[in-house]
Design a protein around this nucleic acid. Structure first.
Length: 211
DNA sequence: AGAATGATCCTCT
DNA sequence: GAGGATCATTCTC
């Protein structure tokens, strides 16, 4: 696991560094794992897309904790979304984990998402929480020592090089100029959706897809 | 107290 | 490509 200091830096830097790392979910005797292939950074109170941009509420309370804990919240009446809180205590920022590449205990993921093809198990922020049984009970959990953790990439087969793609955030209207979404270019498990991103790319005239 | 909204997913066409 | 599901949180009256 990472030391807590890993989470104290800027959210966008950490979002990028989390690519290729391994999300670990401990379910009894089973260790469910997936490689992080897509993330999104949410900055502090000056980021209008950040839940905490208007100050602390009951819902976003854990975002104000010191980096290294999980911020899990419920949305759209159906889905839990998992974030890694970043930065020092009192400065609310986080990284949304948007997609995984399944690594371990695939059968458990399939059981949690019956009828889905393997490519659909964890290719989205709401899908991966369902596959890994992540709910609001894990809100505030310690990402360095708890049933949800994030591990560094191995020195072994996970150390393969990859290109990092970057774009505006998905499902967000505000602050598209921040280009706060990062993903492993070409990885089939990245959640793909186009319109908003395509519009943003056209608008700025700059290339926003790195593969 | 009531209404609007949303860091999404799924099922159609 | 479009719309419904579904409900906690937040904002407004």
């Amino acid at each position: 696991m990472f030391s807590p200091e890993f989470y104290l830096g800027r959210a966008d830097r950490i979002a990028r560094r989390l690519l290729g790392c391994v999300l670990v979910r401990v379910l009894g005797a089973r260790i469910v794992a997936g490689r992080i292939v897509e993330t999104e950074a949410y900055f502090s109170t000056n980021d209008p897309a950040c839940h905490a941009h208007r100050g602390m509420t009951e819902r976003n309370r854990v975002m104000f904790e010191q980096g290294g804990v999980a911020y899990v919240y419920f949305t759209y009446g159906n889905h839990y979304l998992l974030n890694a809180v970043t930065g020092p205590k009192g400065r609310p920022a986080a990284v949304l984990i948007r997609a995984l590449e399944p690594l371990d205990e695939l059968d458990l993921m399939r059981a949690n998402r019956p009828g889905r093809r393997d490519l659909e198990l964890t290719s989205g922020p709401g899908k991966l929480t369902q596959a890994l049984a992540i709910t609001g009970k894990l809100n505030g959990a310690d990402l360095t020592d708890s049933p949800v953790m994030i591990a560094a990439r191995n020195g072994g087969e996970d150390a393969t090089r990859f290109r990092v793609g970057r774009s505006g955030r998905i499902g967000i209207r505000e602050a598209q100029d921040k280009l706060a979404r990062f993903y492993i270019a070409g990885n089939p498990h990245v959640s793909v959706r186009g319109p908003r991103v395509a519009r943003a790319a056209k608008h700025t005239g700059k290339p926003q897809w790195a593969g």
